[in-house]
Amino acid sequence: MKKLSFVTSLLFMAVNAFAQTAPCCHTDAVAEFATLTSREDFRMAHKDPLPYTYQGGIGTAVTFDAPDGTPAHGFLFKASMPSDQYIFVYQEWYGLNDYIKKQSEKLYTDLGGKVNVLAVDLYDQKIATNREDAAKLVQGVSGKRLKAIIQGAIGYAGKSAKIASVGWCFGGGLSLQSGLQEGAQNVGVVMYYGMPEKELTALRTLRAPVLAIFANRDKGITPAIVDEFEKNMKTAGKTLTVKRYDADHGFANPSNPIFDSVATEDAYGQTVRFLKTVFSH
Rank of each mutant, 00 (worst) to 15 (best):
170 F>P: 07
170 F>T: 06
174 L>R: 03
175 S>E: 06
176 L>E: 13
176 L>H: 07
180 L>C: 08
180 L>H: 10
183 G>E: 10
184 A>G: 04
186 N>H: 12
186 N>P: 02
187 V>N: 04
188 G>L: 01
188 G>H: 05
189 V>N: 06
191 M>N: 04
193 Y>K: 07
194 G>F: 08
195 M>L: 06
196 P>F: 10
196 P>V: 12
198 K>G: 14
198 K>Y: 09
199 E>W: 05
201 T>E: 13
201 T>F: 03
205 T>Y: 04
206 L>R: 06
207 R>Q: 15
208 A>W: 09
208 A>G: 10
208 A>D: 02
209 P>Y: 09
209 P>I: 13
212 A>L: 12
212 A>C: 08
213 I>V: 15
214 F>D: 11
215 A>H: 13
215 A>C: 10
218 D>T: 13
221 I>V: 15
221 I>S: 04
224 A>P: 00
224 A>L: 07
225 I>D: 02
225 I>W: 02
228 E>W: 00
228 E>M: 06
230 E>K: 15
231 K>C: 00
232 N>F: 01
233 M>Q: 03
235 T>G: 00
235 T>H: 00
236 A>K: 01
238 K>Y: 01
239 T>N: 08
241 T>W: 00
241 T>F: 00
245 Y>M: 05
248 D>F: 07
248 D>N: 11
252 A>D: 13
253 N>L: 03
253 N>V: 08
